[in-house]
């Protein structure tokens, strides 16, 4: 008996117990916090790929270099598309805070469409490059280029599928603490990808052609 009753429940206020026990809101906060940590790990993955790219940039193996390949016009367009999509995902979160489910779903839909456009442009760029004979195995520079830019693109693609899944869930469940957290997380992810892209744009494209 003595061994068992160690829990000094008498000292815990019911309110505290409540928030610990039925911790739904608490739990959603915790999930967001975990996602921030995940983003840190993703930063390190990108950091590694950026470092690789910078080391290998000059190793063109007699093949084309950045200045020969990149057409900055198209890249600027896709950069704007991604920036705007970041903005629309922000509008989605604002609509959510106002409790406007229709607007929330609409803005998420717009964000997803812009994301899809971005991916389409990237695929198009890659096809064009391969057509010019610049493939992953042409040189170390191109290996690093495709891997860095492709990894970002893959992230956008994952975000896209995820966003569509969340839109459907919003349609089913409405704005609940759970869906709210999911919208927060995807929007965080989307802004993150935007920031990564700014680095890609600067380090790979701008510094490549200049």
């Amino acid at each position: 008996m003595a061994q068992r009753n160690v829990n000094h429940a008498g000292q815990v206020s019911p309110a505290e117990l409540h928030s610990e026990d039925h911790g739904h809101p608490d739990m959603e906060e915790m999930r967001k916090f975990g996602f921030w940590i995940y983003l840190m790990t993703d930063i390190i993955i990108f950091g590694t790929l950026f470092a690789t790219y910078i080391v290998l940039k000059g190793n063109t193996n007699g093949g084309p270099g950045p200045a020969d390949l990149f057409q900055i016009g198209g890249i600027i367009v896709s950069t704007f598309i991604l920036l705007i999509s970041s903005y629309t995902s922000g509008l989605a979160v604002l609509a959510m805070h106002k409790g406007n489910r229709q607007a929330l779903m609409r803005w998420l839909g717009v964000t997803a469409l812009l994301g899809a456009a971005f991916i389409a442009m990237e695929v198009n760029e890659f096809i064009h490059l391969v057509g010019e004979g610049a493939t992953l195995s042409t040189s170390a520079f191109l290996s690093a280029f495709y891997t860095l830019v492709g990894t970002h693109g893959l992230h956008v693609l994952v975000g896209l599928v995820w966003m569509i899944a969340i839109i459907i869930q919003l349609g089913k469940h409405g704005i609940t603490p759970v869906t709210k957290r999911k919208v927060h997380i995807i929007s965080l992810f989307w802004h993150f990808l935007d920031v990564v892209w700014i680095f890609v744009f600067t380090i790979v494209y701008l510094m490549g052609v200049s």
Partner: peptide, 18 residues
């Protein structure tokens, strides 16, 4: 993996790998 699977040149001796 990309080196081995897709012919990339990150760590190879040829193609500018390091």
């Amino acid at each position: 993996f990309l080196d081995r699977y897709a012919g990339a040149h990150f760590f190879t001796l040829d193609g500018g790998g390091n």
